[in-house]
């Protein structure tokens, strides 16, 4: 028994690690020291964007699939929350309870992602990017011009997260912890999935699809299934995104936001699932505060320059910088990310 428990502790130690524990504690006590604005608008938003970017990172990092449609998947979940739940726009808003709406939205997002995977999985490289970009553009213009389902340019507003067990989830601190819980479970699921049988085979497909096929694995099915998993992650983030803003409109799923998600993943680093979250935090801080540092008309230039600098000095993004610091401190040990 004690043997088993010490083994469990051991496993916990290798799986979770000191760095994770430190990071986890920091994130848990963060709302206690930060203001409401930093808890909700910076913390919550970073975790949501990070989770969407994580769904891209798992496809790029482990499968070499650059999918630009992840935001559309999240957006579909968000739209479904607005349509099936309650909104104040006077269009749709079926008023279903949240415990029906949320699973339905995530399931639909997952299905949508699977379909995208099935369409895109036989291509690779730039062709995958083209197909998923096209899907993303179509989704954006469809939501903007369709009034029957998506209510066009105006979209939906007045969407509120539910009150569960007396906790109003729109309050900054509960909302932050909700985002943290979702982000952390996705993060650990991705870490676990990377080492699972499927994850290893998926990385094999990335490295040499033809050899994997010869070994009896189907690259097509592996890619589609990876899209399905990424759809679950993006779908959950989409629900949080619409609760966070209280509204959703085509601007939420626009092409520039799609590019933002790609930038977040790349700047953070696509070699480790912590990358998207680091990237999202830097992105949100810059987007919010760049305007205070430079003439307001030119703040986007500053954002662009910072991202260029990061990528120029470290092709693996901020996670890459961290790795190199670890390496230079302990030259004999190879850095392992966080």
């Amino acid at each position: 028994m004690s043997d088993a428990s010490s083994k469990l502790m051991d496993q916990l130690h290798t799986q979770v690690g000191v760095k994770h524990a430190a990071l986890g504690i920091t994130l848990l006590i963060y709302p206690l020291v930060a203001s409401d604005f930093f808890t909700f608008q910076i913390g919550g938003y970073s975790l949501i964007l990070g989770t969407i970017a994580l769904s891209l990172m798992m496809l790029v990092g482990y499968g070499g699939i650059v999918s630009l449609a992840q935001l559309s998947v999240a957006g579909l979940a968000g739209y479904l929350v607005a349509i099936l739940g309650e909104n104040t726009s006077g269009v749709h808003g079926f008023g279903w309870p949240w415990w029906v709406v949320v699973p339905t939205a995530i399931a639909a997002a997952t299905f949508f992602s699977g379909i995208i995977g099935a369409v895109a999985a036989r291509t690779d490289g730039i062709y995958t990017i083209m197909i998923t970009l096209a899907i993303s553009v179509v989704f954006f213009y469809f939501t903007r011009q369709n009034y029957e389902i998506f209510n066009g340019f105006t979209g939906f507003s007045g969407i509120k997260p539910p009150v569960i067990f007396g906790v109003d989830l729109i309050a900054p601190v509960p909302f932050y912890y909700l985002c943290l819980a979702v982000a952390a479970s996705c993060y650990f699921a991705v870490l676990y999935g990377k080492r699972s049988t499927f994850g290893l085979a998926f990385q094999g497909v990335r490295d040499n699809a033809r050899r994997m096929e010869a070994l009896g694995f189907s690259p097509f099915l592996h890619r589609v299934f990876a899209h399905v998993l990424a759809g679950v992650v993006a779908g959950m983030a989409g629900v949080l995104l619409v609760w966070f803003g209280g509204r959703i409109s085509p601007g939420t799923v626009g092409i520039n936001v799609t590019i933002d998600i790609l930038v977040i993943a790349v700047v953070g680093g696509i070699i480790h699932p912590i990358g998207p979250f680091v990237g999202a935090l830097v992105f949100v801080l810059l987007e919010t505060f760049a305007i205070d540092f430079i003439v307001p008309e030119r703040f986007n230039t500053l954002i662009g320059l910072v991202f260029l600098t990061i990528i120029f000095f470290s092709p693996n993004g901020l996670v890459g910088i961290w790795d190199r610091i670890c390496e230079s401190i302990t030259p004999n040990k190879k850095g392992e990310g966080v």
Binding site: S249, G254, I291
Partner: peptide, 9 residues
């Protein structure tokens, strides 16, 4: 000053 791109979000 604050800036938007004409989208409500």
């Amino acid at each position: 000053k604050g800036s938007s791109d004409a989208s409500p979000d």
